[in-house]
Computed example of a mutant assay.
Amino acid sequence: MPWHVYLSGEIHSDWRLRIANAILDEDLDVELSAPVTNHANSDGGGVAILGEQPSDYWRDHVGAGLNAIRTRTLIEQSDVVVVRFGDEYKQWNAAFDAGYAAALGKPLITLHPEQHDHALKEVDRAALAVAREPEQIVDVLRYVLNGKLPKRR
């Protein structure tokens, strides 16, 4: 039975693709899911489906509601949640996802550069592992699924 891994967080780099490709290369029994990663669709989905809103606040509000249906459902169905915090933007939604996963008792792995350690200390404390590179996520998954350690890099 495959493990379901939800990949939350920043959408401006190739980290998800790197994980997906390595999982395929390793032939790990893992299925990945993620939020809507097309930024325009994520921001504009509420208006596109539910109609124009009277202000930017309400535009964001209806979009966030639609995105939350997907996010909450996929986090609840996941076996492991990975949350990526990137360099360029403040990912408040990623922090929320991490807290939601932790509240549900989901195993949580954070992925971020060392310079974010202080800002993310509470989130990292809830995580069972803190990774610096996407490949380490695959190393963790290989280990927890098969008990195999990575080859030395």
Rank of each mutant, 00 (worst) to 15 (best):
M1E: 11
M1Q: 10
P2R: 04
W3V: 13
L7H: 01
L7G: 02
G9Y: 05
G9V: 10
I11S: 10
I11V: 11
I11N: 06
H12Y: 07
S13Q: 08
D14I: 04
D14N: 04
D14Q: 04
D14W: 01
W15E: 10
R16G: 01
R16I: 06
L17D: 11
L17G: 10
I19M: 05
A20Y: 01
N21T: 14
N21C: 14
A22R: 11
A22G: 01
A22K: 10
L24D: 14
L24N: 12
D25P: 10
E26R: 12
D27I: 03
D29S: 09
E31P: 00
L32T: 04
L32P: 15
L32I: 04
S33G: 08
P35A: 08
P35T: 04
V36W: 06
T37I: 13
D43Y: 08
G44F: 07
G45H: 05
G45P: 07
A48W: 04
A48D: 06
L50N: 06
E52V: 01
P54A: 09
S55F: 05
D56Q: 14
Y57N: 02
R59Q: 15
R59Y: 11
H61E: 01
H61A: 14
V62C: 09
G65N: 13
L66C: 08
L66Q: 09
A68K: 15
I69N: 06
I69P: 09
T71W: 01
T73S: 05
T73A: 05
I75T: 09
Q77T: 05
S78R: 00
V81N: 09
V81I: 14
V82R: 10
V82Y: 07
V83Y: 00
V83C: 12
R84E: 01
R84S: 01
F85S: 10
G86L: 07
G86M: 08
G86S: 07
E88F: 11
E88A: 09
Y89C: 10
Q91C: 15
Q91S: 15
W92I: 13
D97E: 15
A98S: 14
A98W: 11
Y100M: 05
A101E: 06
A103F: 11
A103L: 14
L104K: 02
G105D: 00
K106W: 00
K106F: 00
K106P: 02
P107Y: 02
P107D: 00
L108P: 00
I109P: 06
I109L: 14
T110W: 07
H112F: 13
H112M: 13
H112T: 08
P113S: 00
E114T: 12
Q115P: 06
H116P: 13
D117E: 05
A119I: 07
A119M: 04
L120F: 05
L120E: 00
K121T: 15
E122P: 02
E122Y: 05
A126K: 08
A126I: 06
L128E: 11
V130H: 13
V130T: 15
A131M: 08
R132A: 13
I137Q: 07
I137W: 04
I137H: 06
V138W: 00
R142G: 03
N146M: 12
G147W: 06
G147I: 04
K148G: 05
L149E: 03
P150L: 13
P150Y: 09
P150R: 08
P150S: 11
P150K: 07
K151C: 14
R152D: 10
R152S: 11
